[in-house]
């Protein structure tokens, strides 16, 4: 019974590490993708002249030289 419990505990431990690892991996990947989507959003809005945060808050009426 003790051996069974030890094996079970080890297995649960391994499974939980795997699940935890999978969750962390997914979170990191999702965070990356969110940053990418946000980056595209910022670029598009700056190009449209509708983004007014950060240093652009002080800049008005400037033409992009694209």
């Amino acid at each position: 019974m003790a051996i069974f419990n030890t094996c079970l505990g080890k297995r649960i431990d391994m499974v939980s590490t795997l699940v935890l690892g999978a969750i962390l991996t997914l979170l990191a990947w999702v965070a990356l993708q969110v940053t990418v989507i946000h980056g595209k959003y910022v670029v598009d809005h700056i190009a449209d002249g509708t983004y007014n945060k950060g240093p652009l808050a002080d800049q008005s009426g400037r033409d992009s030289d694209e």
């Binding site: 910022v42 670029v43 945060k53 652009l56 002080d58």
Partner: peptide, 14 residues
């Protein structure tokens, strides 16, 4: 030079 530069992208949470 942040107020003088023409940015195409600005990072958040600077």
């Amino acid at each position: 030079w942040g107020d003088q530069i023409d940015y195409g992208y600005v990072m958040p949470y600077f």
